[in-house]
Structure formats: C-alpha cells, structure tokens
Design a protein around this nucleic acid. Structure first.
Lengths: 225, 225
DNA sequence: TTTAAAATATGATATTTGTCATAGTTTGAG
DNA sequence: CTCAAACTATGACAAATATCATATTTTAAA
C-alpha cells in the first residue's frame, strides 16, 4: 500500500497541513482506486462518506438542471480534493462526478477527515482557505454566465482547459471533451457549441482532429467577443 | 457601547460559536456603524481588513463585468457576516458591497477574527460550514444562469426576495430594488427586465406602485418557464 | 411645491441562440 | 476488421434577448 507521507499529490491540497502522525493514520485507512474513463464516481444526492484525493486523471462535476441537461460546474485536476464540501456541511452531495480520463484516486473515510478537522486547526484553516478560493472562482463563473455571450464563454472554456491541463506532444488539448461537454460547460445547446467551434475553425482560431482540439491562435481567441 | 454577548443577530452566524471570553474581547474592539441607503460599504479590489456583522438592513454584493455592467452576486441579510472570504484567503475583496436600505453594522478588525480562527476550532468549523453552504448555493446559481431563461430567472428572483425579505403591511416586497438591480441579478439588459416585469403585470402575476412590487399570484409565478 | 434628473415604459429592429431535421463522420464493441 | 451506435456537422427556421430611440412617470433636490 502506498504512503500518503511520500505522496507528491498531497503538496497541492490541504492534506499538506496534516502532521506526520495524522498522515500515517490516514495512510492506514485510505483505499486506492482506479476509475475508468466515463465511469460515475458519485451521483447527485448520494452520501459520499469521505473525500477523494485525485492522484491522476481528470473528472467533471455536474449538476442536473430542471430542463434535463447536465451543467458542468467544475473540472477537477490532479491534486484536488473531491467531496470536502458535502463532508463539511454534512449533506448529501449536490453534484455528480464523472471521470473524463482514467483516474487514480485515494478515498479517505469521512470520520478520519472529520477527526483532523476537529483536532488540527492548521488543517481546518487550510481547507477553509481552499473553499474561500473556490467560492471566489464560483463568483467569477456566475458573472461570466450572466454577462458574456456563448461565443465568448466557449472561447474562455478552451483557454481555461489549455491553461489548466496543457497539451499533448502534438499540441492538442490533453483533456478530450465531447461537444456536448463543451456545451454543458458554457450552458448552451450542443448544436450551438458545435456551430461556434466550426466558426472558430473557419477563422483559424483552432483546428480539430476528431474530438481533439488544437488552439492555433491563442491571442485572437482571447479577444473573442 | 452595545454588547456582542447579548446581541441577537449573533445567533444567525458563526459568531455564535465563540466563547464568552472571546465575545467580550470582540465587543471591546468592534465599531458600530450606520450606513445610509445607496452608500458603498467597500469596493472591489479594496483591502477590507475585517468582517462586517449585519445587525439590520440589506445590501447587494456586486462584481463589475468586462462589459461595464454590475452583476449582483448575492443579497446580504440581517445576521449575515460580510467579508469573511477575503479575510480567510487574505486577498483584496473581489466584490463591492452597497447598502440597499439604511443599515446597522458592526465592524470587527481582521486580527481579532484571525486570532479566533487559530484558537477556536468550533468557530473555524462553523465558518467552514457556512462557506460550504455558500458554495453550494453558488453552484445552484451557476446552473440557473446557464440553463434557465431570463424570464424564469426573473420570476425566481422575485420569489427569492419574497421568501428571504418578506413584505410590508400592504404586501409589497419589503426590499426595494430598481429595475436595473433586477436586471443585474438575472444578468440581462435593463430594458429586458422592465419588459418582462410589464408582462408579469399584464398577466396578473405581480402589481407595481412606483418601484414597489407586490406578488399577486405566487403559484403561477413559480411555474413561469 | 417646483422642476430637472433619473427611472420606467414601450416600439422597432437587429442579433443571438435554440430547435428540429437530416446528413456525414468517428469510435469502439464484438 | 466491420458496422451499428454515437457523435459531429450544417441548413432552415423559430424564439429569446439586445440595442437604440423616444415617450412617460417618478423621485428627490433646491
């Protein structure tokens, strides 16, 4: 079994604020899992009963809206913790998590995390700081959704994915999303997302090869209105 | 000077988790302020350097978008704390706060709150829980913005204000917002908000008297699509 | 109370986005 | 490798929303 103390991923999230002893305890009770691309990790309304620490891979957090469409609220990266919010507020989760690539994750049971939240104020403050940042980001998303055009939001989604997840050797975005996923990020109809991406292609801002997308003109893409 | 220990408002926010001693210390260093309707409490990009505890009145939290329009991200009620997020993440504020009615607030300096966040884990956990709830609400706002029509968002905004702030003796919504404010809540042009409110009036869902709005048919308003 | 400024209201029109239909392309299970 | 299912693409049209112009009403300062 792998050891949390020597896990690099921990550097990127609040677990870095745990003591040596706490980490050893966590190591002893965590479960490592491999999750296949497309697999549901947890579903809206479920009791999650713990926290996932993402060692590798990408997943989407979605919420089903009244009209039956999934809205992608966040993309989760290597190093992120998944499920802290539901754990902290002691509620069923309000989001579903689905793997977008093969993932390596560790699951840490709820009571272990809660124990440390009560005992280690450095850890609690660190979780609090992460949540404060998430909230700030959520505010920005709200403003973008409310005030920007679909075209602009889609351009920004491409830039966000480029900046966050980077590219493969041949400069394609390394996270591969369906056109429907893109539509669900920016909150539009799938056909509209496809149409706008086609337009971006015609304008030389991007190129595509199947589902893969390459950003050809980042400067102009940033200026899209 | 009024006493935090005996302040009823404290029941509604995280300050209820402070000890008697901590409350006495806070009482000694807080400042009470009256803020006039329309007055700016703090502006986006400012260092807030503390937390506001809202004793009475209502204010809006806004963020300026790239197109020059203010987006209202949240309405703050009696009992809410203002500015915890910036304090916790130690950043300048990302939102502006403007009074929508005359307000009574207490300002508690940053170092006092930070002290308690380090020493009192009950308090820290309570702040964390409040922030987790705010984040969940923000997720819901994102989904609504992305997936619902302007008409539907406006109907929901009216219902939200009705449920949260209630009505005056003559059943008018007790929080008075301009049409521009309504537009900035739902993220639309002021003319569009006015037009839709006019339509709601024609359809008998609401009635108006100047800026005041009365909900006439809550059931049908809830069904607006 | 008066009156100018601000806010609300509404028409005409342009633009954006959604919906439905259908065709072409890619992908992955067997 | 094959082929059906899933995804992508695009046209035609409908609906929602934005923009600009202008009139009317309300508000608040003098």
């Amino acid at each position: 079994m792998s050891n949390c103390e020597q896990c690099i991923v921990r550097q990127f999230n609040s677990l870095k604020s745990l003591t040596k002893e706490e980490l050893i305890r966590i190591s002893g009770c965590k479960t490592s899992k491999t999750i296949k691309k497309g697999q549901l990790i947890f579903d809206e309304g479920e009791n999650v009963n713990g926290v996932y620490c993402i060692k590798d891979g990408v997943c989407k957090l979605t919420k089903l809206s009244a009209n039956g469409k999934d809205q992608i609220v966040k993309l989760v990266v290597k190093g992120d913790l998944l499920g802290q919010r539901s754990l902290v507020s002691d509620e069923v989760t309000n989001l579903s998590a689905t793997a977008l690539s093969e993932m390596q994750v560790c699951f840490i049971p709820k009571q272990e995390i809660m124990h440390d939240l009560h005992e280690n104020s450095d850890f609690t403050l660190d979780v609090l700081q992460h949540m404060a940042k998430d909230l700030r980001k959520a505010d920005n998303v709200i403003v973008n959704m409310a005030q920007k055009s679909v075209r602009q939001r889609l351009a920004e989604a491409l830039i966000y994915i480029y900046n966050t997840f980077g590219t493969t050797e041949d400069d394609m975005l390394s996270v591969i999303l369906s056109r429907e996923d893109y539509a669900n990020i920016v909150g539009t109809a799938t056909e509209s997302a496809i149409r706008i991406l086609s337009q971006f292609k015609k304008d030389g801002l991007i190129s595509t090869k199947g589902k893969q997308i390459k950003i050809e003109d980042l400067v102009t893409l940033k200026r899209v209105e």
